[in-house]
Design a protein around this nucleic acid. Sequence first.
DNA 1: TTGTGTGAACTTGTTCACAGCA
DNA 2: TGCTGTGAACAAGTTCACACAA
Lengths: 267, 267
Amino acid sequence: MATGRNHRPATRSRGIPEATVARLPLYLRALTALSERSVPTVSSEELAAAAGVNSAKLRKDFSYLGSYGTRGVGYDVEYLVYQISRELGLTQDWPVVIVGIGNLGAALANYGGFASRGFRVAALIDADPTMAGKPVAGIPVQHTDELEKIINDNGVSIGVIATPAGAAQQVCDRLVAAGVTSILNFAPTVLSVPDGVDVRKVDLSIELQILAFHEQRKAGEESEAAAGAPAPAAATPAATAQTENAGPDAAAGRKGPDGDMPAVMPA
Amino acid sequence: MATGRNHRPATRSRGIPEATVARLPLYLRALTALSERSVPTVSSEELAAAAGVNSAKLRKDFSYLGSYGTRGVGYDVEYLVYQISRELGLTQDWPVVIVGIGNLGAALANYGGFASRGFRVAALIDADPTMAGKPVAGIPVQHTDELEKIINDNGVSIGVIATPAGAAQQVCDRLVAAGVTSILNFAPTVLSVPDGVDVRKVDLSIELQILAFHEQRKAGEESEAAAGAPAPAAATPAATAQTENAGPDAAAGRKGPDGDMPAVMPA
DNA sequence: TTGTGTGAACTTGTTCACAGCA
DNA sequence: TGCTGTGAACAAGTTCACACAA
């Protein structure tokens, strides 16, 4: 995004920080659990614990939404569930298409968390003609040829790409051309999209590499007990760091690196 | 870099910012692609474009690793691949176990990106006895009873949890007790772990919810064309924002919310 | 009291812009 | 000359600590 101005012009009250947006689903999940147990109110402290953040952060986050709490008491669970749902746009239902019904695509189609929260799998799409008609998670797979029609007929604005890396950009282009403006990309590729289209990326191997980095560091620094015997790391009472996806936008250049690439390790 | 005097921080390669660590795998992938095409050197500008970031950020990131570039020329591809791989700990191989061989677990087992970069799937573990022995991605599934033995025998320090939410904490506890110190969690739960154990979380429904938030905002701001007819957003040449997982640590509290929870939407 | 809501301090991350080396 | 490497300015995000409402 070479042209200065990032995303949100940060209008006064409408400017919820990205970091906060990324945590709202977390709060929502915790709140929904409380709601199911018919808990009427929660304090920021309790809710923060359930969501895995600290209470100051949670209160700050909520303060961007408005003053939905009651001093001395806490937050009304049902009310907060509704407010956050509304803020996230989950009070309407979002039809999504999943493109690429391999192992991952099938897993996504079967994933309950989709259907359960405002999202509806409108179609499963795959390039393999022999897949066409086969039901996955109760939904018949359709051929890529139908992509544009499906998007149009269902008013789909969110697409999930679970194809091999080599096909991702092409699929992305077609989705965008057909009217999709938000893409969740599981393929290990940097997608290039026009302005106004949001892309979020989930990359399994990147997550593992980040873990490896920290793991290596641990091994390096405590070269004491760890080595020979399997260290009994059990039963420490402390609760610790959780890392959640978030992350600010970053400009994406053209260029089309594709395919999976094996590690190369020159001496 | 000032050669003395300063505090203690980024003297050598210690003290790489989290945000930088999270991008190293991205650079590594782009570099590996270049390496395969036998490209000898890249400029920060080119590499940044391929990785989907801007060049200033990339140079800053690399400056934390050391001075691996050549002014007026760029970076030696092979050399950088090696340096980043080493920094990420990918020059050694990491045995990982995947627990929970449902749709997602199977997808992960089949995912090429694991094996191709320093990671080796040491075992697949599932609680279902009827799965035992069945090969998935060429690896026979083993029963949960074997978990501790497998971890010990293979010196596994990284575990992947792909179980239903209800089982995740329990599996996590056993992994940790057996010696695992890094966990990649796909279950929609906040895991509680002792100090010193790293958890990274990938949550599909959270990613979608974040997209929905932005999608909703788009719809709200351009209430023009969007509504009835599917807006033809095609063919703008610009390349845009990509969002990648990253995110600083956050304290995780106790508390055990479990199970998938359906959306609740009070009026 | 109790626990929210928030200004202010602080930390981390990003961008700018340019000195300096190949 | 061209591109890296990096201080310094800026922006985003987090934590602190406390006024104040219920």
